[in-house]
Write a protein that binds this DNA or RNA. Structure first.
Lengths: 165, 165
DNA sequence: CCTCGTAACTACGGGCGTGCAACTTCGCGC
DNA sequence: GCGCGAAGTTGCACGCCCGTAGTTACGAGG
């Protein structure tokens, strides 16, 4: 057992599944097919472990949201590719907008409305704030469900959220 | 040959493919799997023909748009199910909005903006006006490319459009 | 009746997972 | 230090969905 070290060393595979709401095989599949690899530590064989960063979680959750909305994995792939290069920006208030071929981050509600008004073709809109909120809620949920063994060293969910936006 | 009777007797299979921009196999598959059957005349065996109405074309084009935007066929299925029961309403100015589980027709730009503002979860937005426009343009295109043999009996694209919205 | 245009049937392939069993590694008690 | 069990990863076989290719069957019209 590795003590569920979710703060200092990221999140482990099975943990991530509960957090994001996907099956382990799915997470595995995504890692194997390069959709999203754990950025802290990739698996190196049977006995090793994957370690996902908080940002990975956000990306993962975005993918999951896309899937739930009926978007194909291939499209999600492109979206995440874009998102990964733009993580670190003001995210909580922004929305990720896909038009099928391109991706854009709409930083303000105004931007978003503009996009919608001129909208040619189909738009897929992902409100990142909501995604991050749900993720953090889930993290707290699972964290408090466990007798926090290291009450001092935390800073996972809440501070991570601050980091995001 | 049935003289391409696209007005009085609807549109034939291969015709439809060119009009909406999909392969015949795809159209065939969609018909077989009940995604969208021709409403004027379904095939009755090898020797017969399918006949699609203008409305079918609109629905088909919506599906195609959804697919191009990366939406899964299953989701498109639900969307079309909804749309078919609501065709006949003011369409050209409306947008079809999917949130993954439900579908809504946003009749005005205002409605749409509202939806986007409160948007929880991912939204897929299909501007029907654009879809209809493109479809009509394509119809005219293909119609004028042929030496209109019955210049008097037309009224397919333009009047059909009027019918739609 | 014969040909042409369509629809139908039978593989076949790729994408996206799922389930199971095997394997590797870790950490613990001894 | 060592065996052991738990946790996590991996390989492989399998299944479903979404088509595609090619071939065959069929009906309508000349």
């Amino acid at each position: 057992m590795v003590s569920d070290g979710e703060n200092e060393h990221g999140f482990g595979g099975p943990q991530v599944c509960k957090l994001v709401g996907i099956s382990y095989r799915q997470l595995d599949y995504w890692a194997r097919t390069d959709l999203l690899r754990p950025s802290l530590a990739d698996a190196q064989g049977s006995g090793t472990q994957r370690r996902y960063s908080y940002r990975d979680l956000v990306a993962l959750k975005v993918i999951k949201s896309l899937l739930d909305a009926g978007v194909s994995l291939q499209t999600a792939r492109k979206a995440i590719e874009y998102l990964r290069t733009h993580l670190g920006e003001q995210i909580s208030s922004a929305s990720l907008v896909l038009n099928g071929t391109n991706s854009v981050l709409a930083q303000t509600g105004e931007d978003l409305v503009d996009l919608v008004r001129q909208g040619q073709g189909v738009l897929n809109i992902v409100p990142l704030g909501t995604v991050v909120e749900e993720l953090d809620a889930r993290i707290h949920e699972l964290e408090s469900a466990r007798p926090a063994r290291d009450a001092g060293s935390r800073g996972g969910a809440a501070s991570a959220h601050a980091r995001g936006g």
